[in-house]
Structures are given as structure tokens and as C-alpha cells.
Amino acid sequence: MAELNGAAAAGSERLARLALDVLMAMAVPERFLNDWPLLKATRRVTAQQLPVLAWLDELTDGSSPILAPLLNQISRAAPKLEWRQTYKAEDLGPEFLTRYGWTELIGQRGPIASTTIACGILLLGPELLYPAHAHEAEEVYVCLGGTAAWMRGNEPFTSKPAGTVIYHPSWMPHAMRTSSTPLMALYVWRGGDLTAKATIIAPS
């Protein structure tokens, strides 16, 4: 495993600490906090950009003293992060890929290694449906910026503002739909295969 240089390691560790601060302040279920690794960056990642980053500037907001430090740090650090996509054009269409991406901070692919949790940032552009999907890992989200409608199980889509905590048990179908604004959300997975591709239940 290649060592990060000092500046890259410090930046990754700062993001992870800010993410943990948000999760603790928002009172997510304790089991999502118990298995966190030592926040020491040991894995080298390669900076990778995606089209969805074009909407980052619309999300920078200092209005929440809890969320703003992480939201603003993600915006500053974005060019140095490894942004990824789980799906391909044949899964959800090429237009979906222009408005979707995520970066892992902690897990089996992020700079901070863990085999028990995966923690990162999801970014969705405006006017996008992320169709119903499910995965083995249970999941918690904290909406950091923007407003989107979320669907859980058989519940209808409901608008959730920044600061909302959303929980998905293992294999619960869930979906997100943005309108005129993008969405940035912090996520934590635990249990199951932390690198698994979610199963799409309803096509876009």
C-alpha cells in the first residue's frame, strides 16, 4: 500500500474528521460510529474529476455551523479527490452519468482503510432521478447541501432539506430525486460487501 504524501494525508484525514463531527452532531445510530478506524490516511488515491462537479459551487453555504465546515472543505478539496461512478451508461443512460458521482473517504477504496464501514460523499446534479435501488449494507445519509425528494421502501417521495438524517436498512429500496438544485450527502455503509454495486429496482 503506497504512502500518501504529507499534504494529501492531512487533507484526507481532515475530511474524515469533519465527517465524523457531522455524524456525531446529527445523532446517527451509534452502531454507525462504533466501527470507525483510526483516521490515518495510508492509501494513495488518484485525483479524478467528473462532470457532476460543475454544480459544486451551488452548494457552498455557511448557514449551518454543523454542516458548513464539511460542505466547504469538500468543495475546496474536490479537485484532489477521486470521484467515482458505480454505474455505466448501459445501466442508467449517459445523461445520468453527467449528474452523478461519489468519492470515498473511508473504506476499501478510500485513503483511510476500513473493512467494516465505507464513508464518503454522494453528489447529484439538478433535475435527476436516482431510481430505486437496494444493497446488502445498511446505510445512513446526512444531507449536507441542496434539497431532494427521497423515497424509502413503499413510502412516497418526500422532500428532505440539508441537515436531515435518512436511514436505509439492508436491502430496503430507496431513491432520490433532485429538482432545480443539486444534492450533496454524506453516507456511511456498514455490513455486507462494502464495494458491492447496488441492484437497480426501477429504471430511470
Rank of each mutant, 00 (worst) to 15 (best):
R152A: 14
L67P: 06
V140L: 09
S159T: 14
P51G: 08
R109Q: 13
H135R: 12
G125F: 06
L67M: 06
M24P: 00
Q49R: 15
M26T: 12
Y100V: 06
T164M: 04
L33H: 02
L129Q: 01
Y87A: 03
A89S: 12
L128G: 03
Q48K: 15
C143Q: 05
A25P: 08
L97V: 07
H135C: 11
P126E: 08
R76A: 13
A134T: 08
F157R: 02
Y100R: 02
N72K: 13
A148W: 04
S64W: 04
E58S: 12
I66H: 05
V165L: 06
P131M: 05
E136Y: 10
P161D: 03
E138K: 11
T158A: 15
Q73S: 13
Q85L: 05
V52Q: 10
A118P: 04
K160H: 13
T46I: 10
P161K: 09
A47I: 03
Q48T: 13
M24F: 00
M24G: 10
L38R: 12
S159D: 10
E136Q: 15
P29L: 07
T60P: 00
A149R: 13
R152E: 13
T116M: 10
S159E: 14
L124H: 12
S63K: 11
L123H: 03
V140G: 09
F32G: 05
G146H: 05
Q48N: 14
V140M: 05
L81C: 11
E127Y: 10
L70T: 09
T158C: 11
V22D: 07
I106L: 10
P51S: 04
P126R: 10
A149Y: 07
A25F: 01
T147V: 15
L144C: 08
P94T: 06
L71I: 14
R109L: 13
G163Q: 09
W83E: 00
Y141D: 07
T116P: 00
D57T: 12
A162Y: 00
E58Q: 15
S64R: 00
E139D: 03
G163W: 07
E127S: 14
W102S: 11
R99D: 12
V142W: 02
E127I: 00
T42D: 10
R99A: 14
T158G: 04
L53S: 03
